[in-house]
Design a protein around this nucleic acid. Structure first.
Lengths: 221, 221
DNA sequence: CCATCTTTGTGCACGCGTTCACAAAGGCAT
DNA sequence: ATGCCTTTGTGAACGCGTGCACAAAGATGG
């Protein structure tokens, strides 16, 4: 039986072994003292806890370059996601195959959602269409939305929205790049806080009251 | 002079006003007691500290769907980034305009980097080509890399790599979605820790010793 | 010029996550 | 069967970030 110790895993992941053991302990006691963790069993338990063993049908709305890139992205299937449909507002796109799936028109959105029991939607439309698409997805029964459009979406209570800003990571790199060059005390002092904020997950939630910015509201557009 | 108080900003951003003031204080004392912060001046100071006032030439390597999406992404220019060149290995792509720029062949990579003083590179190639492209970028003088390919890149000390996994955000949504349905005590206990890890920034650094996974090493591929 | 009001900047305390350190547990060799 | 060795699981301490609360500072009105 292939096993692995918390120390090996911790070294490989670059974290503390005690933290790793404590995290695992929240899932139950799957380890064997003096031996370690049964790899296969551990993988299964973590996968199950994370929902990787479940089948998650998702729809991608907005089949531009980004939407097509997402449709072709192989990482989804292995993580338990199944692209149920690709949806676009352009009638010229309808029926055209992308990543092996025919693009469906926006008119069919509600039917697709309910027919496939979709609860997760991906928005890859231009900013202008995002809110409208979001509203329709929510009305059709979607309760989790991944938003690639550069807009803050407002959703009713109980709906989760995560916003992905492709330029934020680049901005973090530039910030560090800047510090590699000229260092002054002010920059150094600010780093800890700023870097942390930057590295934090980008998320928004209906529970927040105001227009929730992932970057400070004072940031120039 | 238009001003804004820490309280207003905090409410808009959904954070604590004391934290916001403390963060600003690391950049210096730019506020006026009894009045607030001069909006224009504050914006400038933050922009400068974050490197937004600087011009960052970047190259995008791998002009597939994702590369094209990035090239067309408007958010870069407004954040101080300038796409210096689009590079692809396919000779058939060479010269073809994407987002107003002619695609250049990989052979020109080194020349483009040095001619434009590029220090930040974006990799949007298939996984198989990523490490090779990375090595050439680094050799040519790039010191910060944004990696969209599903591979962990190894780089020499001093080079920053940030990895963007488009499926991670989706996975976090699915995790919460799963918890909306059936709740058991184990899931609830694990949530705090797991959600935090999931929300954390995806990053890797040359300072880490081993093959650094942003997801646990035991995660199924 | 003084009083009052507003808002900043920050010392301090609380809470939480991380890490240390060790007892308990299980395997394995003799 | 017994003792030793390895590794887990976790109680406790440490460190750090966040939030509270207030003194200092500046504006504003009388």
């Amino acid at each position: 039986m292939p096993t692995v110790s918390s120390e090996e895993l911790a070294t490989a992941a670059g974290v503390n072994s005690a933290k790793l053991r404590k995290d695992f302990s929240y899932l139950g006691s799957y380890g064997t003292r003096g031996v370690g963790y049964d790899v296969e069993y551990l993988v299964y338990q973590i996968s199950r806890e994370l929902g990787l063993t479940q089948d998650w049908p998702v729809v991608i709305v907005g089949i531009g370059n980004l939407g097509a890139a997402l449709a072709n992205y192989g990482g989804f299937a292995s993580r338990g996601f199944r692209v149920a449909a690709l949806i676009d507002a352009d009638p010229a796109m309808a029926g055209k195959p992308v990543a092996g799936l025919p693009v469906r028109h926006t008119d069919e959105l509600e039917a697709i959602i309910s027919d496939n029991g979709v609860s997760i939607g991906v928005i890859a439309t231009p900013a202008g269409a995002a809110q409208q698409v979001c509203d329709r997805l929510v009305a059709a029964g979607v309760t989790s939305i991944l938003n690639f459009a550069p807009t803050v979406l407002s959703v009713p209570e109980g709906v989760d929205v995560r916003k992905v800003d492709l330029s934020i990571e680049l901005q973090i790199l530039a910030f560090h790049e800047q510090r590699k060059a000229g260092e002054d005390s002010a920059s150094a002092a600010a780093t800890a806080s700023a870097a942390r904020s930057g590295a934090g997950g980008v998320r928004s939630s209906a529970s927040r009251k105001g227009p929730d910015g992932d970057v400070p509201a004072v940031m120039p557009a």
